[in-house]
């Protein structure tokens, strides 16, 4: 799935400049708990979260993720967006809830991928 499809499916708005909409992503994870993302996630490219602080970008960066979608209408501040830009991570916001966002992406073929047990 391409990043532009994720944006369409989630009716999401890009909030960082120069997003590579053609970039392919294969797996995603959804969590508000960054500890769990660090513990269980492996090789996922997209982070879907309702948590809104700089550690979301830090976590995504550590995991080599390329895209973050803030759900439930969360609006990341300038500090978060600057950090994401520095790390070349595309950021979107969506009004959808976590459950609905994950469900829509799954329905369209995006999967959770491997995880640490």
């Amino acid at each position: 799935m391409k990043i532009k499809e994720i944006a369409e499916i989630l009716q999401a708005t890009p909030v960082t400049p120069n997003v590579d909409f053609e970039r392919e992503v294969h797996t995603a994870c959804g969590s508000d708990m960054m500890s769990d993302v660090l513990a269980y996630v492996k090789n996922q490219s997209v982070l879907i979260t309702g948590l809104n602080n700089p550690q979301v970008v830090r976590t995504a960066d550590m995991m080599d993720m390329v895209c973050i979608v803030f759900v439930r209408g969360k609006k990341p501040d300038e500090q978060i967006l600057t950090l994401a830009q520095e790390r070349h991570i595309a950021v979107f916001t969506s009004e959808l809830t976590m459950f609905t966002a994950c469900g829509k992406l799954y329905e369209q073929g995006l999967r959770g991928g491997e995880s640490h047990g």
Binding site: A39, V56, T59
Partner: peptide, 14 residues
């Protein structure tokens, strides 16, 4: 803030 799930030290070891 998204932390404090008791996974920090186990993760570091893992």
């Amino acid at each position: 803030l998204g932390f404090g799930a008791g996974m920090g030290l186990p993760n570091m070891k893992k």
